[in-house]
């Protein structure tokens, strides 16, 4: 309930800004790299590596004045990581490799500091975000031929993981830092930005003693276009 209230508050905040003037609204999309961080539980033949996904957002930016603005919006982001169980280096075989993506709807809020003129600006920002995981997907390759089966069917797979509310953390919160560049184009502004999100919430809930905390941080490169719908600042 508390998490739902926080999420509601975060959604209402940009809406309240919308009620003010100086508001830019747009659409934004980009590429996301995921960095998996596991606090223990390392195995010699279980490897994690950077994953690739994408994001889409409806960004909202309230321009308080020429150099300061508050950015928010609603964003879908896939937080990816890759995993492989591979003993090839020890004379074994590549048993399992997978690309895991946790799909979130999140609300970021950041303070942006801009430098520029009426045509161009650069900005730096920092803030926080909260989100809800609504889906997890896994795709990859299970190499069981010669190990569990002689069947030569396609080892590739793709599917949605069953989210377990008692063990999977469906809530996400973290910090973000961003840098970008905007230029006036047509009636709106084209924005290219990069954003790093650092997660505070493990993929797993605290359901067991000795839990290995697991996080996915992301680095996103996005492009978007926004237009002014308020006071035109």
């Amino acid at each position: 309930m508390r998490k739902a209230s926080l999420l509601l508050l975060a959604i209402l905040l940009p809406l309240s800004l919308y009620a003010s003037s100086g508001l830019n609204v747009g659409i934004e999309g980009g590429y996301t790299m995921g960095f998996y961080d596991q606090r223990g539980g390392e195995r010699p033949f279980r490897e994690f590596s950077m994953g690739h996904a994408f994001e889409l957002a409806i960004p909202v930016e309230y321009r308080v004045n020429g150099w300061f603005s508050v950015a928010s919006g609603l964003r879908y982001i896939g937080k990816p990581y890759n995993m492989a169980e591979d003993t090839t280096a020890a004379g074994g075989f590549d048993f399992y490799s997978s690309r895991n993506v946790s799909h979130f709807l999140e609300v970021p809020v950041s303070a942006r500091f801009s430098l520029g003129n009426g045509t161009m600006r650069g900005f730096l920002g920092a803030g926080a975000c909260i989100g809800v995981r609504f889906l997890s997907t896994e795709s990859g390759r299970l190499n069981s031929q010669g190990f569990l089966t002689t069947a030569g069917t396609d080892p590739g797979f793709w599917g949605a993981s069953e989210l377990n509310p008692s063990s999977d953390n469906l809530f996400d919160a973290g910090l973000l830092a961003e840098a970008g560049f905007g230029c006036r184009l047509g009636g709106g502004e084209l924005i290219i930005s990069a954003r790093y999100q650092y997660s505070f919430t493990s993929l797993d809930r605290e359901y067991q003693k000795g839990l290995v905390y697991r996080y996915i941080d992301t680095l996103s490169v996005t492009a978007g276009y926004s237009f002014s719908i308020g006071g035109g600042k």
Partner: peptide, 18 residues
């Protein structure tokens, strides 16, 4: 898929060749 108790992969088909 991790050292946590309930970290599992997807379910995969185990087949026998016809």
């Amino acid at each position: 898929t991790s050292d946590n108790r309930l970290s599992y992969s997807l379910w995969h088909d185990m087949e026998i060749e016809g």
